[in-house]
Write a protein that binds this DNA or RNA. Structure first.
Lengths: 393, 393
DNA sequence: CCTAATTTGCTCTTGCCGAGAACATAATCG
DNA sequence: CGATTATGTTCTCGGCAAGAGCAAATTAGG
């Protein structure tokens, strides 16, 4: 959003600002609030809202009266307004959902998949997407897909334990004229937190998603840092623990080897079996909760490594707050003492005065879908996106 | 720069865009180039240039003719135009300089200082700044100061080997109505590279400055990532090497302990003496260049640690290019083999296909001053800054 | 129940801005 | 030396948001 530079760009630009603000307000922002927040004249706001309503981009609904004075209205989604199609592809299943302006999510379909070969999995998903596009019609303006691995130039670079390597996902998931945007699941979970969760309003936030691997994203002013080729956030692949183990990623001593499902198994002394790592890891966490000392020791070891690495990244990146999702929440909750001790010990002295909070993500299991829908709407909530929508009717 | 939202903001906004583009063009951009690059109509450009000239913000000078057609003019600094006062405070001396639009630098004064107490050092510097402000008059619109330590909310947090702790630098350096901006030296060196050096035009770049400590900055679209409280870039204080040494910063195993002047001494087995570490480190580098095997071994050890950590941060942050300044240049140049081997070994496999280049900074010793002047001009090259300038005459 | 106060929406005028067209100008090329 | 080409200059036009004045719809208070 570079901003308007000609008088002709002002109107589209302000329409985007208004619709974006209504979207970010989660369908609760009133016209008078929006007018104030965006610094508009009341007359201008009237024109803009009328434009949005006429274009079926938004609709005003009566708002609960709060104070004295003439009542204002909520600027919310239009019943025939734009939809984002959000897809969350996990290792063993995928979910599709739609989101309207304001973020309201409707889960549409959930299906398991065999994991391999990638072309078949993505091909089936592409078919499902096409079906939904047909069924929902031109209201769907954009598709956002979350994938469980790093993505570079529209290709899934690597999902080691699914044996996906350099899969041309964008090509397979192409959906006619509807734009499809791909994102890493951890990145999108962080994006969701930044827009509608615990990182809302936070200038610089750090999000970690722990599963088998440890991924994350740095959120700057509500958007993930993208990097040169879109693969920022591989924090798990820094040698933050001083280990000498080789990592699947090709490097050595990666933090991921000490924090995650497999790390719990290793710390517990259990063999790492490809398929059931997650269930075994959850069993260890349950064991620790029930007082099994060996499980507790494994948990503490992993929590310490998690805390130390978190401190390292806080030292380097100076976030205001850190959020956790996936196994990270359990690690932090069940071993807060070990985590916090290692975290504070790893901070530079001057950061210990007011260490950034480490908190669980506010959005639960929907975070990835929410992030995918935000990604999709980000592509639409632009002057070009709105202009195309208006031109199409 | 959020962009104009009302018709009245368009003019100031476009004046800023034009002056900023002329500034970034290093005093070589012609009016026709600027018109094209900014997407302006020729008539609009004429008005804007006339405005800038009348406000003594810029001036047109004849340009060397390149092709057929009516000649155009270079939009360069005005002889009575705005100046930025740039200050580089190092551990043992400080330098002041002025920069005009376009970045042309004039060094004004260079003085040694005793290093302590901080209030006296900064007080003397404040006096010098006031003297220059008086001498140069109202042309100086902004002051930028580079300081050799982390800065948070206008205070120097910590310079361990000068024993500076929590020094209220902004308060001491206050300069009447002229705004004073403070920045970390490594951050500003990186900023200079992003604007006028080897990171120019690079979307995401990583800069490392190695001295006693290892600092740096992540540059996103030409600006340093700021963090929640302005202390991003302490990459040296991540435990990237697996060491157990305690660090002055309060954490353990910091990368800085393995990369820097003192690290060279330690690797060579020489006692670390507070005052002359830099000279001793340079002697080791010279020794290595002359073939002394123990110096060479120390150099290689440090270069390997440097390469490994660089890979870790490339994995995590996905920069397009990495630049080095300070001792980092020597470490990389004199032990390219050791550095590169460790660098590539530490990269995730998929990043090895096209590893981000690691190159020395293009600006030499002036980088910090250039960065300080850019910081100062960033505060001026805004609609508010230009409006205030125009109102003042 | 009724009036004053308050807040917001609506309408119209005004001032400003950049686009774009038509023309003028100054260089190169053959 | 005229044709060509690129750029600067001037003027008109359409569009936009600000802002003022008025209308509307609610609450507070008696």
């Amino acid at each position: 959003m570079t901003g308007a530079t000609t008088s002709g760009e002002l109107r589209p630009h302000n329409l985007v600002r208004l619709l974006r603000a209504a979207h970010d307000g989660a369908g609760r922002a009133t016209r008078s609030e929006l007018t104030r927040d965006l610094g508009l004249a009341r007359g201008t706001a009237a024109v803009l809202v009328a434009d949005l309503a006429e274009a079926r981009l938004a609709e005003e609904r009566p708002a609960p009266q709060r104070a004295r004075g003439r009542p204002t209205a909520i600027v919310g989604p239009h019943p025939e307004g734009p939809l984002a199609l959000a897809v969350d592809l996990r290792e063993d299943a995928w979910t599709t959902a739609t989101a309207e302006i304001g973020g309201g999510l409707t889960v549409r379909e959930e299906r398991p998949h065999p994991g391999n070969p990638p072309e078949a999995v993505l091909g089936d998903l592409a078919t499902a997407i096409d079906r939904w596009l047909t069924e929902l019609g031109p209201r769907v303006v954009s598709v956002g897909v979350a994938l469980p691995g790093p993505i570079r130039d529209g290709r899934v670079v690597d999902i080691p334990h699914l044996s996906w390597h350099d899969v041309p996902a964008a090509e397979i998931l192409r959906a006619g004229a509807t734009p499809v945007a791909l994102g890493n699941d951890a990145t999108l979970a962080g994006l969701a937190e930044a827009r509608r969760g615990a990182l809302r309003g936070v200038g610089v936030g750090l999000h970690f998603h722990v599963d088998f691997d440890l991924g994350g994203t740095l959120l700057v002013d509500g958007s993930p840092l993208h990097g040169a080729r879109g693969t920022t956030g591989e924090f798990g692949h820094m040698p933050l623990g001083g280990s000498d183990l080789p990592c699947d990623c090709g490097a050595v001593g990666c933090w991921s080897l000490q924090v995650g499902a497999n790390a719990l198994l290793r710390a517990r002394g259990v063999p790492v079996e490809p398929a059931r790592g997650r269930a075994d890891a959850l069993r260890i966490l349950a064991g620790a909760a029930e007082g099994d000392p060996r499980c507790a020791a494994a948990l503490e070891e992993v929590a310490r490594a998690f805390g130390t690495g978190t401190a390292a990244l806080v030292n380097a990146l100076d976030p205001q707050r850190v959020t956790l999702s996936g196994l990270g929440v359990r690690l932090h909750e069940q071993a807060t003492g070990a985590f916090t001790a290692a975290y504070e010990n790893g901070l530079m002295a001057f950061r210990r005065e007011e260490p950034p909070q480490v908190v669980p993500a506010a959005l639960g299991g929907d975070a990835t879908l929410v992030g995918a829908s935000e990604l999709a709407f980000d592509a639409f909530l632009t002057p070009e996106g709105l202009t195309a929508w208006q031109a199409a009717r």
